[in-house]
Write a protein that binds this DNA or RNA. Structure first.
Lengths: 197, 197, 197, 197
DNA sequence: GACTAACCGAGACGGTACGTCCCGTCTTAAG
DNA sequence: CTTAAGACGGGACGTACCGTCTCGGTTAGTC
């Protein structure tokens, strides 16, 4: 059915090349609609109309709105939350949690929730989403912990994956729950659980 | 739009009373379709057809497929995972995590994911879902911890909500991620973090 | 697949009855578009839009634009060409040919051509079209001839079907050919071939 | 828009010459698809794909599928029905009608119907089609009649065009109607109407 | 025992989005 | 300058559901 699209630059056989302008217009239109009306009311139809693009073009390069949102979102999100490096694990984690909470309160929250919903409903998409999430967000947490181990702040046998699960599990749980904030205090409680070396 | 339906028993003026048979047929049909084709392909149309019920009846009692699934699911799920009580917090938590993992591997997993997706996309539904989840699942964890505090196994000022967040955050994160199992080992790692009194 | 729709009045089971207003609006919209842009540019999409009607409604009751046009056309065409009765076969036929030619020069021509094209391409539709054509137009010619036989103007063993074929064959051939007119002179040449009693 | 293409041989400037191989492949592919799926499902897209030809090439040489079919058909149809010459008008006509009926029962029928439909819907194409039809089929009938006049079998003032209209009008009418056969008996009835000299 | 009122099933209604197909045009590299 | 390839914007197709509506019919309490 759908398979890993070529990276836009690579592919070059005969035939008219893919239009960079359309590509960009689609991702821009997607973000606009997302911000205006949210993930649920986002529609391939609306994206195409807003981007001034044939509907087929969307199907040619992505496969669903989730794939488009994932790409539109990953373009902007990488730089949004800078990886902290204060020299102390605990304050790194606290700061990361706080920054994440701030960003998610703005436009990113609803978008992440949309992607999360899609991942919950579609195992194939979950794999793509998780892969990206892993490299863009989880890697940050694991770096913080790894640096701390090197510094001797944490025991060398610390289970990085487990701690990343805890960090993002809590974060996403609170994001979906919308009851308790994702803030500095939450980060502090988590950081206090970290073992001594 | 839609507002809290009366509890079926209460309301009684003139007019034909609501049909308990239809009510049940709807919930049964919902579970059947959920198991056969999953949450995404579940449709009010299909539920009504399968249950032999007018489509209007669904709108009279519930407001969306999410509400129906929530009720259909809550009917069966309460008894599914018995609250453990071994006399030791840590083994209680481990056992609960293990049992939860087992249940979620069967039919419950996809259904919980469906409800989670809905909660992610719809704040109003999230409130309903969380309320139920709170009373049916979170309460179990908090009871385990509360009992342990009474026993002197845990410090009396332990933040129950925080620990519940950690437990279910990790659990749901792994459920959506579908990468790492929800098993005894995960419960053990979590239990080890509990503070001494 | 598609089968003879009920006559709008007859059918009455449970469920909301068919909307007469929509039915009429559809046929009206169809005639309007036909006159404005012709058969080729007529589209189920446009009919629905113009009639202010859901697209599904068209599929529910007809099956294709050809079926709709056939009904829209048959509503208006029956009375358009009055059956002549001058007391003489030859002048009856001449007059009928002349009147037919006149009508086909106006809106009817393109519509008949559209239906003819559809009949040429679709055997199933051809049967429907021919049935209607038989009862509305061929019957007129055969009546004229039958009356003449009764009057003793024509031999009693005259092959009515063959003469009807000749009449309409010539007529439609000239309609499609658009080279030679369908006029009084054509009718006269045809009438002259009729055998003496 | 589209205008009379040069005759393939004539034109010759600088640049790569047109490919005769492509030209033939297109016409062959067209006939194949016509036979397999009929005129309605014939598509420029499919022709190009089957012929292994760029889609643009079709537009360069012809303007529509009707034009392609017309050429593909005219290549093969000229020789299909030999002009009869028995020495007697009536048997000539009967034989021609019979042969035509036989050919139209095979592959030619649906194709002629397709072209007829196109002619009905598109006046510009009708002119092209009629011109070819005139020279390839009508000419045969008019020759038969002209020879008979020369022989003294028919009156010298016979209206050839009128009789050709009658012949092909009846033939095409029965072809579209699909109710009565195009056979020897039909030819005989027609021949009997011919006037004595 | 008639009346009223809310329910029931069925199913048509106007809409919206889907995913597919084809159109006619364009833009490449290759010949 | 043509060719095959193939992407582009556009538009119609036929299908699936949505939430609403309108029927005839049912089933209780109330008069």
């Amino acid at each position: 059915m759908w398979m890993e699209e070529p990276a836009l630059a690579e592919r070059q056989g005969p035939g008219r090349p893919r239009s960079q302008a359309s590509h960009d217009a689609i991702l821009d239109a997607t973000m606009e609609i997302l911000i205006e009306t949210g993930y649920r009311d986002l529609t391939l139809q609306k994206i195409a109309a807003r981007a001034g693009v044939g509907r087929q073009t969307l199907y040619r390069w992505w496969g669903s709105k989730a794939d488009i949102v994932l790409e539109a979102f990953s373009r902007r999100t990488a730089q949004e939350i800078p990886a902290p490096d204060t020299g102390r694990v605990r304050s790194d984690l606290v700061q990361l949690m706080e920054e994440s909470g701030k960003v998610l309160k703005k436009v990113s929250g609803p978008i992440v929730l949309g992607l999360l919903a899609e991942a919950a409903l579609d195992e194939a998409f979950a794999a793509k989403f998780w892969k990206l999430f892993q490299s863009q967000r989880r890697a940050v947490v694991k770096n913080i912990l790894a640096r701390a181990i090197k510094r001797g702040e944490l025991p060398p046998n610390l289970d990085l994956e487990f701690w990343a699960d805890l960090f993002f599990g809590g974060l996403l749980y609170r994001l979906v729950g919308r009851q308790t904030p994702i803030d500095r205090s939450f980060g502090e409680k988590l950081a206090k659980l970290l073992p001594r070396p």
